[in-house]
Design a protein around this nucleic acid. Structure first.
Length: 410
RNA sequence: GGCGCUAUCGUCUAGGGGUUAGGACGGAAGAUUCUCAAUCUUCAAACCCGGGUUCGAUUCCCGGUAGCGCUACCA
């Protein structure tokens, strides 16, 4: 239906922490799709959570994306036609649309207190009904409601969810339908005047003319609310593609306790970006035939397709990532590997303070020798110790090591 | 509790109404005139359960079960 339009996708991280591999995969799929379709990749910062958002996280996320080789055509640092690209800078836009919805009768003021709502929820739970808002304040006369708000009464703004079922198309999962009874009238602007995520994301995606919303499947259940919002706002509904969750070995959402989860951690371990990109691409997507394992970014751009993305959740397999990393370490330009490895040697105190040309060339030889035996660059110094601390006399004296003294201690 | 999503070797997956159900990681065994985590070869390893449709279901449909997600004036 909108196939003639130029593809516009966005990656929208919230700067509340480091870039997680799951989000990195979402960014990668967005980027691959945009580049393949010769579309536009937008980076937008979702910093409506004022408490937890930090500028240093935003900077780190940008750096990590660049390290992975993912770039963007519009974003907070490069600007673009739809600037600004930070939600905290777009508040007046959200306000404007909310008032319009109110004036058009598509949204209403809600004066219910937190206690009222809690009571409703408990009653619903007791009767095994969906826990949705009763819609009490829908009945209020809009003019009177506005007056109450003007006189200082705290009011949130809620969207009216239509009475009919809401369905939408998802490229990964097909058609998804929700009964309107199970979808609550969502609050779009808090009584404090600060808009809610599910609302601003729609305003931004619509204003920025996003054609394909590619994101984690934790947003799937929120999508009917968003579809209703697009319709109320009079914007076309985009295509959706909800990516499955990345799990740890215990089938729980992948988190710190499973080991490394952030992109910078993998970089610090000595994982090559091309290995991580290759691994992440294969986690939830497979090429036709499904037998090929290694892809350069260029090849991924050519081969990737959202239609072939698997809907089922995937467990993150560190071993396979390490295997791919070893593959790329071995095939990379040796000079680059040396460059990337030297810091680990310095950190381990294995290099003299004055790195003479001689020391360097020796280090290069050591690294070249050991590279096939590690799957993270970080492991190199440990492997090198037996060589660098080699004691020729002791080796000669050792009876069991008389033939191949150093290899025996590998 | 309600709603939604998901279900092929241990893991990532290919495949698809009739197949020896393919590949990869990991595992095991062997080779590489010693060790060996590199390399090569070989092997083991899977269609969640129950109905239905069909001449025939792992594949299509329904139900169950399990896992995950959403159910906030979080994102």
């Amino acid at each position: 239906m909108r196939s003639s339009e130029k593809v516009r996708v966005r990656f929208a991280p919230s700067p509340t922490g480091l870039l997680h591999v799951g989000n990195a995969r979402t960014a990668l799929y967005n980027w691959l799709f945009a580049r393949q379709k010769k579309g536009v990749h937008v980076l937008r910062i979702e910093d409506t959570d004022v408490e937890r958002s930090e500028a240093r996280f935003e900077a780190q996320i940008l750096e990590d994306l660049r390290w992975l080789g993912i770039d963007w055509d519009e974003g907070p640092d490069v600007g673009g036609h739809f600037a600004p690209y930070r939600q905290s800078d777009r508040m007046d836009t959200y306000q404007r649309y909310a008032e319009r919805l109110l004036d058009e009768g598509k949204a209403y003021l809600c004066f219910c207190s937190a206690e009222d709502l809690e009571r409703e929820r408990q009653a619903a739970a007791a009767e095994h009904r969906p826990q949705v808002y009763s819609g009490q304040c829908r009945q209020l006369d809009p003019a009177q409601a506005k007056q109450r708000r003007a006189s200082g009464e705290a009011a949130a703004i809620r969207l009216k969810i239509p009475e009919h079922p809401i369905d939408f198309h998802d490229i990964v999962r097909g058609n998804v339908t929700f009964d309107s009874e199970s979808v609550s009238d969502p609050i779009i602007v808090r009584s404090s005047g600060i808009p809610v995520y599910n609302y601003v994301v729609v305003v931004d995606d619509a204003e920025m003319k996003i054609t394909h919303v590619i994101r984690g499947d934790d947003h799937l259940s929120n999508t009917p609310k968003q579809v209703a919002l697009y319709e109320a706002l009079g914007f076309p509904v985009p295509e959706f593609a909800h990516l499955s969750t990345i799990l740890g070995p215990d089938r729980e959402r992948l988190s710190k306790r499973h080991g490394a989860t952030s992109i910078s951690q993998f970089r610090d371990m000595g994982i090559l970006p091309e290995a991580l990109v290759n691994y992440l691409a294969l986690l939830g997507w497979a090429p036709t035939g499904g037998t090929r394992e290694t892809f350069t970014p260029k090849e991924l751009i050519k081969e990737f397709s959202l239609e072939r993305v698997t809907p089922s959740p995937a467990i993150f397999d560190f071993d396979k990532l390490y295997w791919l990393n070893r593959h790329y370490i071995k095939t990379a330009d040796p000079r680059r590997i040396v460059e990337l490895s030297l810091p680990y040697f310095r950190k381990a105190g294995l290099l003299p303070a004055d790195e003479s040309a001689e020391v360097r060339s020796w280090a290069e030889k050591v690294i070249a020798l050991l590279v096939p035996y590690v799957d993270q660059l970080e492991q190199l110094p440990e492997k090198a110790k037996f060589l660098l601390n080699y004691d020729a006399e002791a080796a000669v004296k050792a009876e069991d090591n008389h033939r191949f003294p150093f290899r025996a201690r590998l």
